[in-house]
Computed example of a mutant assay.
Amino acid sequence: MHGNVSASGRPLAIEARGLIKRFDGFTAVDGVDLSVPEGAVYGILGPNGAGKTTTLRMLLGIIDPDEGYRRVLGAERPHDVAHTIGYLPEERGLYPAMKAVDAIAFVGALRGLPLKEGRRRGRELLEQHGLGYAADRQIRQLSKGMAQQVQILGTLVHKPRLVVFDEPFSGLDAINQGKLERMMRGLAEDGTTVIFSTHVISHAERLCDDVAIIAAGKVPFAGPVDVARDRIPAQVRLETRSGDGPWRAALPADLRRDGKSDGGAFWYFPLPETGIEPLLRALIEGEAGILSLSIERAGLHDAFVAIAGEAAARALEEETPEAIGR
């Protein structure tokens, strides 16, 4: 939608229309539209090379679009509000000889936070996240995961209104990924807008209010996760005692049956547009003998396949097999 509020009525932290970026004749981003409400956790989901990083860099003003419009925290020039934005780039990097607390303060200073205040807040953040013991250790003395956590805390030390993470879960073990997810939820609960890119569907499905699905530089879908999942009808899984009868006419034509040795059957089919109630009535009246019935909603992976296509989904699977939730 156009304007400065989301479909839900919340003000927009980010609004972008028709962003296009070319590099040496190659179109990396091709007409991207985004609307990110304030206080949301918003995911940009797609395989590596899809245009995620280029899109984020345009939103932040690191590079300018060749065409299109963007507004970030009310400003058409992202640099005007840079002091209210936290950014974790995909390419991590801290000075190895710096102490952890000084590294956090340094990143904050780049956003206008006085070094003394940055050190004070840095110690507080390290304590809050169980890293107080590492405050005076050099970055080179920390594990890769700990160093990444220090850089994440540096992204937050100046208390930004908008936090942008580019592939933030890369390089973190499962425990620290869980910590980061909780941190991101906490930021949103406090009113901070969080936008992150990822090629791991499970992170987007757990965290996001809204997502933009990006493939080959285009965004075929941007909106609530639930709306994306609703692109695919829910599936009904039915177990009946009887294997046949007049009630069979009530089942959709596009069903799948797995027979049972005792004469009953499992049935699997899309939820009818009329809902489950008419079907239940026909099954009961026809004495099908309902042993179990469940309605299974499509996951975000199935929605991604339907929206972005099999090739983009395969690219995700090749990067992270766990992305499909198996």
Score class of each variant (00 low, 15 high):
G309Y: 00
E317L: 15
S202N: 14
S143T: 03
E127R: 07
Y69I: 10
K99T: 14
F169M: 13
P252G: 03
D258G: 15
K179W: 13
K144L: 02
M58C: 00
P168L: 08
S261C: 07
A75S: 15
S143W: 06
A82Y: 03
I276A: 00
R256C: 08
D254E: 14
E310T: 15
A105V: 00
A212E: 00
F165H: 06
P252N: 05
N4L: 13
I62A: 11
E181H: 12
D64Q: 15
T155G: 03
D254P: 10
G243M: 01
L59A: 01
F165D: 04
I276L: 10
V29H: 03
R140Q: 12
S261Q: 12
I232G: 00
V225R: 01
M98A: 12
A174W: 12
D102R: 11
K260Q: 14
R231T: 05
P65T: 11
F26W: 08
K144Q: 14
E181F: 05
L110E: 03
I85W: 03
R17C: 10
L187Q: 04
P96T: 04
T53C: 02
Y95D: 11
I214Y: 01
A250P: 02
I201T: 04
L300C: 06
K260Y: 08
A228S: 09
R326A: 15
A265E: 11
M98H: 05
F269D: 00
R231W: 02
G132T: 11
E38L: 08
Y69N: 02
R119M: 10
V305I: 14
V163Q: 11
A228H: 07
P321A: 09
D210L: 13
L251F: 10
G325S: 01
S8M: 09
G223W: 06
F196C: 09
R229W: 03
I213D: 02
Q177N: 05
P278L: 13
P37W: 11
Y268A: 15
R326W: 14
A75R: 08
L113T: 08
I214P: 05
A147R: 12
G309F: 03
G61K: 04
R248C: 12
A249K: 15
D262T: 00
A234N: 03
L113N: 06
G275Q: 00
F106S: 13
K21G: 07
V164Y: 09
L316Q: 04
E127C: 07
H83P: 11
G74C: 01
P65G: 08
P89E: 02
G191N: 01
A40E: 11
A315G: 06
P11T: 00
E296Y: 07
P65E: 15
G39F: 09
D190C: 10
D66K: 09
A234R: 05
I276T: 01
V236Y: 00
I14Q: 12
Q235A: 07
A282V: 07
R140P: 09
V219P: 06
A298D: 03
F304W: 02
I20Y: 15
E318F: 08
L180I: 07
D136I: 07
V211H: 09
R137M: 10
R326F: 12
G86I: 13
I195N: 05
R229S: 01
W267F: 13
S8T: 13
K144P: 07
G186C: 05
L115Q: 14
